[in-house]
């Protein structure tokens, strides 16, 4: 009996041989990380496709102040496209609205970290409060995006017209007033895919919020689900940082 025991303990067991967590994270958290990695590939593919198509069209080379939309000539300067703000009709405020959206998303990321931090301390009331702020931030972002899409689709009254006597306003998948058709297509695809992620993030956050309120994680003894959904939420913020740079700034 004691002989067999000593044999087992002296055998060198690899930490990868099972029965323990070599990466010191739980299975669920690890899988969330790898899911996010795969999602990063998807988003990169979309953004890099934007780069490919952007560079296969000529850019505008004149003075930015004289820029006009010319879909058959050049790719638009993004800050000339995204310059509208709700309730300020006709006022040119380039990138201000996207700036507000970026701020909202960063703030909701902060409230998410604070929720995770409160979860570590088993402070249910604080988790509830910060989760609720995060959900509100997500909804605010989605509302902004809905306005942005609607504005992009309908076009502006002050906007110049498509050349050769046609008066096409706004954008659809086949043509748009701003630039070559892929410009609008990629806008819909990239921001739409990101918006879908935000939407599912909000839904997940609401589910987790509900679980927190009914005390499920107190019963379970830990708030790890808040951490997992937090990882997803930060990733959505991370993607927006890249979309912001590559779609709106460059």
């Amino acid at each position: 009996m004691s002989a067999t025991e000593s044999v087992i303990t002296t055998q060198k067991r690899s930490i990868w041989a099972g029965g323990m967590s070599p990466l010191k994270v739980t299975y669920g958290k690890l899988m969330m990380w790898f899911f996010l990695l795969s999602d990063a590939f998807t988003f990169s593919a979309l953004l890099i496709t934007y780069g490919l198509i952007r560079y296969s069209y000529p850019g505008y080379e004149g003075n930015p102040a004289d820029f006009v939309f010319a879909p058959d000539k050049w790719w638009p300067i993004p800050e000339k496209v995204f310059e509208a703000v709700p309730f300020l009709h006709g006022v040119s405020a380039p990138l201000v609205f996207v700036g507000i959206m970026t701020f909202i998303l960063i703030m909701s990321s902060v409230t998410m970290v604070l929720a995770v931090e409160a979860g570590h301390r088993m402070d249910r009331a604080a988790v509830e409060k910060w989760m609720l702020w995060t959900v509100l931030g997500g909804i605010a972002f989605l509302s902004c995006q809905a306005w942005e899409w609607s504005h992009f689709i309908h076009g502006t009254h002050e906007g110049p017209m498509v050349a050769e006597g046609t008066t096409f306003f706004g954008a659809n998948l086949l043509q748009n007033q701003y630039g070559p058709p892929p410009f609008a297509d990629l806008f819909f695809f990239i921001t739409g895919f990101h918006g879908t992620h935000v939407l599912s993030g909000v839904i997940l956050n609401i589910i987790i919020f509900y679980n927190v309120v009914v005390g499920l994680y107190d019963k379970r003894g830990h708030y790890e689900m808040v951490e997992k959904v937090g990882l997803y939420w930060h990733f959505v913020d991370l993607v927006w940082v890249f979309v912001f740079t590559f779609y709106y700034l460059i």
Binding site: V25, W33, A40, F41, I48, G51, L52, R54
Partner: peptide, 30 residues
């Protein structure tokens, strides 16, 4: 853990590769 950090970071090399490959391709199409 270091292992976790690297297992997330190293695969992003593929993103860098795709970026270089497709930007060069884009210029060629242009």
């Amino acid at each position: 853990m270091k292992v976790l950090i690297w297992s997330i970071l190293i695969p992003t090399i593929f993103i860098v590769w795709l970026l270089l490959a497709l930007l060069i391709e884009g210029e060629a199409i242009f």
